[in-house]
């Protein structure tokens, strides 16, 4: 008797719990989990979205790795990450230290530094496109000519400087976000450590070198991982800064996600697009696994 009613109560509890989860989970399972599984299947098929799918094994992978545009996309994405990650990190850390000082207008400076991160990309990219105008009249070229006395640059209009333009813009747009993470990290460092260091005769630089940096190690690790993943997902910045009027990005600036987009929605080669998507996934997965491992190490410390 007792066990039956207990069982029933348990079942009723489970049903209530499922009713809480159902609205979100149904949407999530159908529109997220399903497509993720489909992505893995599609990568091994030839499909244009209309005719029947054909299983072709690893051919999509061999054909993207011999595709010039894919290799450029992979290379550009890696180059973009290699330059964006360390510079964004360094600037964000510098800004966090600067805006952690007791100074007037601190909140104001934090707000203006953070705002580009939430500002619509289309709007801020439109401004920077004009500031980076390749002609001499552009504000930034004016700065180069009059203040730094150097030759004006062609910025996004030249294959030599288009990546530079994209990197500079994304540092500007995203540094505020990572600054906020570093600020939280800085505020977590105990004042006692600085006092002890000061008693030992450590100056500002030594304090930074022997207290701040080691204490921020977990934060830095987290920032590197997040930044790298977000760099590999870049698409919209490239589309806005380097896409021509027809939206086509040429080889000097093409990135992985743009390649996926192009193969799928312009060429309707869904299999190849999915194969490229799996390459992106593999890269992100490796970075995530490094993160898991790293977090365990920090937890053991």
């Amino acid at each position: 008797m007792n066990t039956i009613s207990q069982k029933r109560r348990k079942r009723k509890q489970a049903l209530i719990a499922y009713s809480f989860i159902a609205p979100n989970f149904l949407g999530f399972a159908v529109f997220t989990l399903g497509p993720i599984i489909l992505a893995f299947i599609m990568a091994f098929t030839e499909w244009d979205g209309n005719n029947p799918m054909q299983f072709i094994g690893f051919s999509n992978f061999t054909s993207i790795f011999s595709d010039d545009r894919f290799m450029s996309a992979l290379k550009n994405t890696i180059v973009y990450s290699i330059f964006t990650v360390p510079f964004t990190l360094a600037v964000a850390l510098g800004l966090a230290i600067l805006l952690n000082q007791k100074i007037r207008g601190r909140t104001f400076f934090r707000t203006v530094t953070f705002f580009p991160y939430v500002a619509s990309l289309v709007a801020v990219a439109a401004v920077w496109n004009m500031l980076f105008t390749p002609s001499e009249e552009g504000l930034i070229n004016q700065l180069l000519i009059n203040v730094f006395h150097t030759e004006p640059l062609k910025w996004a209009a030249s294959p030599n400087t288009v990546m530079l333009t994209i990197v500079l813009f994304s540092i500007w747009k995203n540094m505020g976000y990572y600054m906020v993470i570093y600020l939280a990290g800085l505020q977590g460092i105990s004042e006692d450590l600085y006092e002890a260091a000061a008693l030992d005769g450590a100056g500002s630089f030594e304090q930074f070198r022997y207290v701040t940096l080691p204490q921020l190690k977990p934060t830095t690790f987290f920032v590197v991982i997040m930044l790298t993943i977000s760099c590999f997902k870049i698409y919209d910045i490239v589309y806005m800064l380097a896409g021509g009027s027809n939206g086509v990005v040429n080889k000097s600036a093409i990135v992985l996600v743009y390649y996926i987009y192009e193969e799928a929605f312009r060429n309707w080669k869904l299999g190849q697009a999915s194969a490229a998507a799996l390459v992106l996934f593999a890269i992100v997965l490796i970075i995530t696994l490094i993160q898991f491992k790293g977090e365990k190490n920090y937890a053991n410390d």
């Binding site: 997220t32 497509p35 489909l38 992505a39 997902k233 996926i260 869904l270």
Partner: peptide, 8 residues
């Protein structure tokens, strides 16, 4: 990342 499964 969403970009991985946006096509399917």
């Amino acid at each position: 990342p969403w970009q991985v499964y946006m096509v399917p």
